[in-house]
């Protein structure tokens, strides 16, 4: 039977269409898990390297922040760390934006279909823009 595309789909396990609100909902969870594992471990590693003194910090720095011309492994891990750092800043901004979205939804606002979709899209625009601004600014300084 031909389906009228103007009619809504009934909630069903296998018949559904991706929407921005579904995407940001799962992104909120995924970025949260990434920040809680990778982000928290990198943060604590960084803090304990500072606390362990200049030598320990120099070795952390060589593998994570700047290889400074030392071996191939350090070059590779600093490159990985840069990708992780950009990914984690994006994850941070995305999680913060969807977090604020959740706080607004908790107030009982923003459930109208159009508003909800727009706000969901805005969280992704905001996180991408903020990540770009931050890293371009960091790279220029």
């Amino acid at each position: 039977m031909a389906r009228n595309p103007g009619r809504p789909l009934s909630p069903h396990l296998t018949i559904w269409k991706w929407g921005p609100h579904m995407l940001v909902s799962i992104l909120h969870r995924a970025t949260g898990v990434a920040l809680a594992t990778g982000g928290a471990m990198l943060f604590t590693w960084w803090l304990s390297a500072i606390a362990s003194g200049p030598d320990a910090y120099a070795s952390f720095s060589r593998y994570v922040i700047d290889a400074e011309g030392s071996g191939g492994l350090a070059m590779f891990t600093t490159l990985l760390a840069k990708v992780a750092a950009v990914g984690l800043t994006w994850a941070f901004f995305q999680h913060m934006a969807t977090g604020i979205r959740h706080l607004v939804l908790d107030l009982g606002a923003g459930y109208e279909l159009k508003t909800n979709r727009t706000f969901a899209r805005l969280t992704m625009v905001a996180s991408t823009l903020l990540t770009l601004i931050l890293w371009i600014w960091a790279w220029r300084n």
Binding site: I50, G53, P54, S61, I65, M96, G99, L103, L134, A138
Partner: peptide
């Protein structure tokens, strides 16, 4: 804690990127 995170994390990210350098002496 979400509210606490907004305040402390925005402060942390901004401070980190405003540091003149990430060497040991600067962060200490």
């Amino acid at each position: 804690t979400a509210g606490g995170n907004i305040v402390t994390m925005v402060w942390f990210v901004v401070s980190l990127f405003r540091l003149p350098s990430l060497d040991h002496a600067s962060v200490v």
